[in-house]
Structure formats: C-alpha cells, structure tokens
Write a protein that binds this DNA or RNA. Structure first.
Length: 847
RNA sequence: GCCCGGGUGGUGGAAUGGCAGACACAAGGGACUUAAAAUCCCUUGGGGAGAAAUCCCCGUGCGGGUUCGACCCCCGCCCCGGGCACCA
C-alpha cells in the first residue's frame, strides 16, 4: 500500500471538502507517513554496492590481499519454505556490522553466504506434491537470497555456495573418499536409531531424550532402536583431540562444556573377575578401582551376553523373566523416572581379584549394556546407585574409604583415604587408584583404561535429497569410485517415498543403481551435516574446479587459527560444530588445511522471543515476519533494533514499540540533513553549515567515536548504538550543524544502518561510498575534559560535588577538598581521619 | 542430582570495586496545530519533609562476610533459563 503524506491528506480534505467526521474516520485507517524515505533510499544503495562490487573479498595475490585478512562467517541457513525469521537476522546483522567495520578499518574481509540446501523438508514436500526437491530448493533459495539482500548485508555474493550444486557435491564426495581411504568410514551392523516417521536412521546426536522417550531432533518424531547395516564415520578415533583442542578455542564456555560432556571422557580401569568354578572371566569397567576392596557383588546388564550361560538352573526362571521384562521397558522406565532399582541374583559367584573373596552376581537393569563392558562391580558404600540397590535387596555394604577429616557417611562418593583395603590402606584416592591398577596389571587381572561416551557417527540416511555415496558394491564388498568419476549425481526420480522395508528411495532408480559390470551403487545418501562440514573451506576458493580449495587460499583465509568470527545458534553444539571439527582434523592430518581447528572464535546469538515472551512459533502466531517489518520500517531500522534490543548472546523478547523507537532514531539522523516542507518534500536542511565544529561538538564526536569503536571490538552493539543516539541527540540540539560533524556520524553509523549512512554521506557531498570510507579517528585530548565534577563522600555517603581541573593529582585533590567551603557541613565538623581519592571519580572522607 | 548462564525502575537494558538506572520503550506534562498525527522540549526508581531552592530515608533475588566503599569479590540459600543425567 502506498504511503500517503500528511500534506496530501490535508489538501485532499480541503479540496474534497469532506466533513470533519468523515475525514477523521478515513484518517484513522490510513497508514501514517514514513518518518524518512527508507523505501527509496535502501534499494538505491543496494544497487550501488552491487554495481561497484565493493564487498568483494580479494583472493591472495589480487590487489587488496596485501591488507590484513579477516574471515567473518555466519552459520549458513537451510532454505526452508517459511523464509527467514528475525532470529536468523540477528546473527547475520551482527556479523555484517563487524564485517563492515573491519572493512572500514582497512581489512580484506571474507564475509560469504550460502545455502545448506540438502535436507528432508524439500523431500517431504516432494512426496506430497511430486515437485522435485531441486525445484523447491531453488525457489526457497531465491526467496532467502531476496530477504537477505533486502537487509543490505555486505556479503561477497560472488562466493555464494549451494551444497546441492554438483560442483559442490563433487568435493563433498571427494572428502568422503579421503575418509574412506583413511579407514575412517566403514559399514557396520549395529543397533541404530530409526525414525519411522522420517523413514530413515539418525545419528546419536540427532536424537533427543524427551519426557515421551527418545525423539528426532528434526520434527520431534518418536525413534526406536533397530539393528541395521549402516555407514559409520570413526569420529571416536579423534575423541581425545576433539576434547583437548577445545582449549585452543575462544568459544562460550557452556558450549565447550556441552562438547566435553558429549565426548564424555572417563579414566579408570578394567578389572577382571573370574567366575567361581569356571574358566569364564567377567571384565568390568570402573572409574574407582581404589574401592575394589569394598565390592560386595557384581551386576550384569540384562543384555549382557553371559547372563544366560552363567545363570544357575535354580535361578533360570527368575532371571529369564527379569530379562524379558527389562527389554519390554522403555528407556524412560529404565532410567530417569525409575527411582526404584530392580534386579535378580543369577546364582553365580565371582572372585574379587584383590582379596579372593567370592561375591554374588546379579542382573539388574540399572546397568547399561551400551557403556563400558556392560557389567559393574558394586561398591555400595561408595557409589549411590549401588548403595540404593544394596539397600533394596539387603546386600552387604562395606566401607573402605573415609574422608580426610570427619566421620564416614553411609555412602561416601568423594575422594578420601583407604582403610580395610590391604595394600591400599592409608593411601589417598589418586594414589590408591594408581597403586591398585599397577597391582592388577602386574598380575594380568586388569588394566588402565580411558573411555569415551562418544560413539561413531552414523553417516548414512535412507533419503533421496542428499549426497550419494561415491561407493559401489561388488557382492558384499564395497569399493570407492575414482576421483575422476565425481561428482556422482542423483538419478531423476518421480517417487521419493521410502519403502517400508527400509530400502532407500534410490533403490527405485533401476538403471542408475546397476552398473554395466554388475556392480551396484550404494543406495543410502549422506546426512545433511556433510555439506556443512566443510563449506567454510569452500568459501575460501569457491570457483576452483581442480581442487576443493587451493592451499594458498586456505592458508591465507584460515590463517590465525581458522575462521576469525563464527556466529550462529547454540543448537548446533554437538551436531554441526562437532562434526565439522572432526572433518577438519582429518583434513589437517592429510595436510589439506593448515590449522587443527576450523573456528577460532564462536559466538552464539541468543534467541529472539515473541512479543509475549514466548518462543516464536507459527502455532502461537507470535512470529515476526522480516518482510513486513522491512516494508513498514525499513531494513536499517530492523538492523538497528535487533542490535539495540540487548546483548547479542542474550535471549530477549521482540518489541514492536522498541522497533518504532529505532525508526525514530534513524529519522532524527535523516532530519540532520533534510527538512520537510509544507508540501511534504524533503529539502536540504538549512541548519547545515560549512563551519568547524564547536569544542563541545568536537568532544561529542570524539566520545562517540571512541565508544563505538571500543564496543564494536567487543561485539557490544547495543551500547554502541546508544552512544550513536547520544551523538545524534547532541547534533539535533545544535542550531548550526557543521557538515563535517554529520559526515563523521554517517561513517560511525555505516556498519549499523548502511543505507541511511550512504544517503547522508552522499547528501553531504562526501566522496565515495561510506561503506568503504576510512573509519573515523579522534584525538585523545578531545576526550579529556578540562575540569571534572568529582563526587564527595563522607564515610562512603554522597554529600556533595566539586569541580576540579581534570589533571589534578591525588594530593592536589585532597588539598582542595580540605579547604572546600562546604567541608564542615559535609563532615558535620568531625575530624577527617583518612582521605581516599580516585581521580576523576570520587573523594571519600573517613571520619 | 550435577555443570554452565542469569536475577537491576512499569519494560528492554547500562554501569564489573568508586555518583546505580546510560540509551531506549512506556507513562505524564508542555510547545506547534482549527484538530489529530508527526516533530521538538520537560518530568519520570520508591517513600518522606518543605511555600521553595533544597534536604532526609530506602533501594540491584534473600542472608552473612571482605573493603574507606560491593549490582560487581567471597560464603550460604531462593528463583528463572539452558545443558547433562543410573555412563559405573
């Protein structure tokens, strides 16, 4: 709807001679006029930027590459049908501000954008409508690109990447071959998560525990365990390095902690218990081998392979019943909510290797088959779970560790000192652990062991819209394709439905799957994460047709520890960010990249809640559509508002009132250079003068420049904008506004509201584009006030103020306070015992 | 239960040992206008005294502590958000 200016409405009223009441009624339904002509300004500058290619990053060797480089990256989006939401834009705005700032600081900035475009939604859409995912994806990408470009982001569009492009897929498959050659890709028959609703298997990382049981991360569908033959990537081979190298990274501590938890390293020992009256041995894994003397029984998981063979005839019925019941239980029943532990003795005894004692063997489902050896030694006195179990079944509890001071609690799980432990007596926990392991190792009864919770990455999916594996099968032997056979592209299909038997949709491509020599293609495709595992490397050299990236480009852009700033949501903590680190390390070992980590510095933007303080959701109807906001208020205002809302990393609610405030701020900037006439035309403001700024204005400029610069370095955009507001308020208050001052403002504003900044810059007759202008500087002495107001406290209570020369030293200040005319009133005539002076801040008199 | 964040006006937030509440939103008042919108200016943490300039008291989740001085550091608790959770 076109916006009508007030003046037109006014004349309309006069000319048409409408009655006042009619006029009012019409008026209320009319949109208010735009506070400044952003709809005209914004497209103009977007075109200018595109035409001058001013955001193009210089490749090493090209002119411009001699500047210091900086790589500023966003987590590229999956182009969904719903389009971008304001949450995406928050992170993208933040990185764009930094990219623009760095460019103005004279750096060669790599700031690219692309599309993580393989994925299930397009495929499901295809199942419903028959539209090929390629078509849907292309449409969605166009829409995303349009939305992103409407925001005026300074991406180097010549580097745009689409993970579904065969030119890109080729290299994703190429990297897979590298993993394959290094024996990091293998096929295994294992119990895996299968999601019937999605018709595919999922990686551990893609399954979330919920109150309704395990669910898929995408779509929240129930998932179940199924033994299936699948491709796995050996991420566990890198567990230790993935853990250790977290220390190299400037990432949020919470996120590093999540990765540490996921990797789940524990150090302990495997201890072997011999079965009494048999040659069988049962290894258990424990992190507390020092408590071995306190072991009073042993527990096997119900799925433990030896349960059946070790069960005595008298216990057979009870054990079989228990195992059957356990397997029928959901994971939920077996874990969280099941406070009560259950189990059955199997009628066998094992020998404790340290003291030869015979202890009973139980089966209980509080022991997990999937972790360790599926068997534990139970030390009820020093483990809470064992304690609960022993209490429930009246099993003996034997204390062998005491705290260094105080009495021994019933169940003491911390480090302490051993007693009643034979050769371990008197040893503190760390020493006792080492001693018992040495003792066991010497006798072949156990060994030191490090374990990780991290499992290998299930890498195949029964989907169509993904990268085909560059692998063929000859019988049950797999073989890699040759490099020159890449890319292996997807066959055209009309029917994308997976079959109930779990056969992937590619199985329907009869001519594609069968090779002339009788070999068969792999029918699974790669998960969506494959493309995002290395896109940041492709951005370094996106048009290379002979290599995924050239060594020179990688070395140049990834110097200094990889991507310099990576911004995205925290939901990728153990998915994308772990997988990408893993691939990067493999590439590092292959000498294809120059640093062991891909993302040196990572920042998570906080989510933006709806105006009602709830998570934005279509079903609640509190989603803010950026297209509408831009239409109504302009992209600059949206950028400014998203940054002004609060600290980047914090969760914060949307506010349409606050949004209007940002528009008002930008309109004030606009009105520094333009004034509206009676008839609604914008004309150059007569307040603009070709004069040197007054000292007050010089000071205001210096302050703003210092504050904005400092805040940009720290990504504190909200306070930077507030400093700009202070400057604008100052300039608005001036009757004569020096052009140079407003020009400096336009440059400070350029990273935040680039369109308006360009317009103001141009209207002031400044040369070139504000976007690539040199960042303003300031003289230090302009920050210094001649005199400063000092707060005077007596016994830490504020009593008064005094104005002092700002260069006054401590002694001088003290002297001046002591002779201040009001000193007696302030101190109440008491004798001053001590004076604390903080120059420029306070004076505190202690009486 | 464990591990990370966080708790400041009516609201979003600012201040990381030195004048709590920058900047903005909302609210109220004023100017301009026939009127409205827009714009500009003023007031605005709470309570109290005063005709007034002004002055006093309270105040950063709660309770202690360190310090001349604490939103900030330390100890103990409460609440909110996120993550992990029978991983031996």
């Amino acid at each position: 709807m076109p916006r009508l200016r007030v003046a037109i409405q006014r004349t309309g009223w006069v000319r048409l001679g409408m009655e006042v009441g009619v006029y009012y009624r019409g008026f209320e339904t009319m949109p208010t006029r735009a506070p400044y002509p952003f709809a005209e300004i914004e497209p103009r500058w977007q075109t200018a930027w595109a035409e001058t290619r001013c955001f193009r990053a210089a490749q090493p060797g090209e002119p411009g590459s001699e500047k210091p480089k900086v790589y500023i990256l966003d987590m590229f989006p999956y182009p969904s049908a719903a389009g971008l939401h304001v949450g995406h834009l928050e992170g993208y705005t933040a990185t764009d501000i930094v990219a623009r700032y760095r460019r103005m600081r004279g750096m060669n900035v790599l700031h690219p954008m692309g599309w993580d475009a393989f994925g299930l939604p397009a495929e499901q859409h295809a199942m419903q409508t028959g539209t090929h995912p390629r078509v849907t994806t292309a449409k969605n990408i166009d829409n995303f690109r349009r939305q992103i470009q409407a925001m005026g982001f300074s991406y180097d569009w010549e580097r745009e990447i689409d993970t579904t492009d065969p030119k890109y897929v080729r290299w994703t498959q190429w990297i897979f071959l590298k993993l394959y050659e290094k024996d990091l890709a293998y096929v295994a028959e294992a119990p895996v998560w299968y999601c019937p609703a999605l018709g595919t298997v999922l990686a551990n990382e893609e399954v979330l525990p919920t109150n309704e049981g395990p669910r898929s991360e995408r779509g929240n569908h129930p998932v179940e365990r199924r033994p299936m033959r699948q491709w796995m990537l050996k991420i566990t081979a890198y567990a230790e390095r993935l853990l250790q190298d977290l220390d190299l990274l400037e990432w949020p501590e919470s996120l590093k902690e999540m990765q540490r938890n996921w990797i789940g390293k524990s150090e302990g020992a495997e201890v072997v218990f011999a079965v009494d009256g048999s040659k069988e041995k049962i290894p258990v894994y424990t992190t507390r081998p020092d408590t071995l003397f306190g072991a009073t029984y042993l527990v096997l998981a119900p799925e433990h392979p030896r349960v059946a063979s070790l069960t005595s005839p008298s216990q057979k019925t009870a054990v079989e019943k228990y195992v059957r019941e356990s397997s029928a239980k959901s994971d939920l029943e077996r874990t969280e909510l099941a406070k009560k532990k259950t189990g059955v003795p199997i009628g066998a005894m094992v020998v404790n290797p340290v003291n030869g004692e015979k202890i009973p063997v139980w089966v209980a489902d509080y022991v997990l088959a999937s972790y360790g050896t599926g068997a534990v030694m139970s030390v009820p006195a020093h483990d809470e779970r064992d304690f609960a179990f022993a209490k429930a079944y009246g099993l003996p509890i034997r204390k062998v560790i005491r705290p260094e001071s105080g009495s021994v609690p019933d169940c003491f799980t911390e480090d302490g000192v051993n007693f009643d432990s034979g050769f371990l007596d008197g040893l503190k926990t760390p020493k006792a652990k080492a001693a018992v392991i040495d003792w066991l190792e010497k006798r072949g009864l156990g060994r030191r062991q490090v374990r990780y919770k991290l499992r290998d990455w299930l890498f195949s999916r029964q989907r169509y819209w993904g990268e085909p594996f560059p692998v063929v099968w000859k019988g049950d032997q797999h073989q890699p394709l040759l490099e020159k056979e890449l890319p292996l592209t997807l066959p055209e299909l009309a029917d994308f439905q997976p079959t109930a038997s779990g056969e992937p949709p590619l199985g329907k491509a009869e001519t594609w799957k069968k090779l002339p020599d009788g070999r068969m293609r792999e029918l699974n495709t790669m998960p969506q994460w494959a493309g995002s595992c290395w896109y940041y490397l492709r951005f370094c050299d996106p048009h290379n047709d002979s290599l995924p990236w050239s060594a020179a480009a990688e070395k140049y852009w990834m110097a200094g520890g990889g991507v310099d700033l990576y911004v995205g949501g925290a939901e990728h903590a153990v998915l994308h960010l772990l997988y990408a680190r893993f691939w990067h390390k493999v590439l590092f070992d292959l000498k294809l990249v120059s640093h062991p980590e891909p993302f040196r510095r990572l920042v998570n933007q906080g989510i933006i809640l709806g105006e009602d303080n709830r998570k934005m959701s279509k079903s609640i109807g509190n989603v803010v559509n950026p297209d509408e906001v831009i239409r109504e208020h302009g992209a600059d205002a949206l950028r400014v508002f998203e940054m002004f809302l609060g600290p980047l990393e914090q969760m914060k609610p949307w506010s349409s009132k606050g949004m209007e405030g940002s528009v008002r701020f930008l309109a004030r900037v606009w009105r520094l250079v333009c004034e509206e006439t009676e008839s609604g035309e914008w004309i150059p403001s007569p307040t603009l003068v070709d004069e040197a700024p007054e000292p007050e204005t010089v000071k205001a400029l210096a302050k703003a420049t210092a504050k904005v610069t400092e805040d940009l370095e720290k990504l504190q955009f909200n306070t930077a904008i507030s400093a700009l507001m202070v400057l604008v308020n100052h300039l608005t208050g001036l009757e004569r506004r020096p052009k140079a001052a407003v020009a400096q403002l336009s440059k400070l504003l350029a990273p935040f509201a680039p369109h308006l900044a360009e317009e103001v810059h141009a209207r002031l007759g400044e040369k070139g584009l504000a976007s690539v202008a040199a960042w303003p500087t300031f003289r230090k002495e302009d920050l210094e006030e001649e005199s400063v107001e000092l707060a005077v406290q007596v016994n830490s209570k504020l009593k008064g103020r005094m104005i002092l020369p700002s260069k006054a030293g401590k002694e001088e200040i003290e002297k001046m306070v002591r002779v201040h005319p009001e000193i007696r009133t302030w101190t109440g005539g008491k004798i001053v015992q001590k004076v604390i002076v903080v120059p420029g801040r306070i004076v505190n008199l202690v009486t």
